[in-house]
């Protein structure tokens, strides 16, 4: 139970008190809470030390009701004491008053006894009234106490029932929240797995496509280089033939030299292209292996990490 909840329950059960008294009680407990808190006690410990708010409220209300009864009893006792004080003095005063009114004749002395009798009778009536009043007070107090106790019990029972209902609702809410969280976690896990699989498929397809394109280019370059080399060799041979055939003719001999040069250049370029095509093809193979192999390593590393986390 939190401090707020504790105060709320206390307030509910001391609502019959005057507002300034309720404020004083709350100030008192608030000050104690702050002092205990300053000494390092937790909210839970302090509330536990304060005790059940119903019991605290019951104690406060008992004191309050007891004080109220004492005040009422004090007023009654004072009234009874006033009545006791009057008896003899009042008789004498009344006697004097009547003597003054009716004269101090011999009959006045005889009037003494009736006054005393009247006084005693009056005292007796006073006693009877006091006894009746006390009985009535007692009955009224008993009835009020019984009613207050019954009301307090009913209130306690209702509060306890409400508390249980709130607890049950809270437990149900917690269970629902946990179930929702679990479902969300499952969905997220499945989604993560799907994304991983899709990414892997896309990667493999990309690597295969890259290998095909790059391999085709390499093969093209290789074939072109081979063709050019063949053409260069043929040109070289044709140039040599023309050179031999046209030794006597200066013009044809010169053309033969040019063809030989062009044949050598074409053959050299062809050889370079063949070498480049070969390098590209090898690079393609290495790169493909590296991409696929790297993915394998990554997968292995990922699995290892998952195992570590699990441990």
């Amino acid at each position: 139970m939190t401090k707020y909840e504790w105060e709320r329950e206390l307030k509910k059960n001391i609502y019959r008190l005057p507002p300034d008294e309720i404020a004083r009680i709350l100030d008192y407990y608030n000050e104690l809470f702050e002092d205990k808190s300053e000494r390092g006690m937790s909210e839970k410990e302090i509330v536990r030390e304060f005790g059940n708010p119903f019991d605290v409220a019951f104690k406060i209300m008992s004191e309050f009701d007891g004080d109220a009864e004492k005040d009422a009893a004090g007023t009654g006792a004072q009234a009874g004491a006033d009545a006791d004080d009057v008896t003899d003095g009042d008789v004498e005063s009344a006697q004097n008053y009547l003597s003054a009114v009716f004269g101090n004749g011999s009959g006045a002395a005889g009037a003494d006894e009736p006054f005393k009798t009247a006084g005693r009778a009056s005292a007796g009536v006073g006693e009877s009234f006091k006894a009746a009043g006390a009985a009535v007070d007692k009955a009224v107090n008993a009835a009020m106490n019984a009613a207050a106790t019954a009301a307090d019990r009913a209130s306690d029972a209702a509060l306890k029932a409400t508390g249980k209902a709130v607890d049950a609702a809270s437990r149900a809410t917690d269970a629902a929240v946990k179930a929702a969280q679990k479902a969300a976690a499952d969905i997220a896990r499945t989604a993560r797995k799907s994304v991983k699989v899709s990414a892997r498929v896309v990667l493999v397809l990309s690597v295969v496509l890259f290998a095909v394109i790059f391999g085709s280019v390499a093969v093209g370059v290789l074939a072109g280089g081979a063709g050019l080399t063949l053409a260069g060799v043929c040109g070289f041979i044709a140039g040599v033939c023309e050179l031999i055939a046209g030794v006597t003719e200066l013009g044809k001999g010169a053309i033969g030299f040019v063809k030989i040069g062009m044949g050598v250049a074409a053959a050299g370029l062809g050889i370079l292209l063949v070498l480049a095509g070969d390098a590209m093809a090898k690079g393609c193979v290495i790169l493909t292996k590296k991409l696929l192999g790297g993915k394998k390593n990554e997968k292995t590393g990922g699995e290892k990490n998952e195992k570590d986390s699990a441990q």
Partner: peptide
């Protein structure tokens, strides 16, 4: 003195709780 200190001073001698002290002070 104040509420917390009064309880701390008396409780080693005789048991007293917060709810007991309030009506006594009043």
């Amino acid at each position: 003195s104040y509420g917390y200190k009064i309880i701390s001073d008396i409780s080693p001698i005789i048991e007293i709780s917060e709810s007991t002290l309030y009506p006594i002070l009043k």
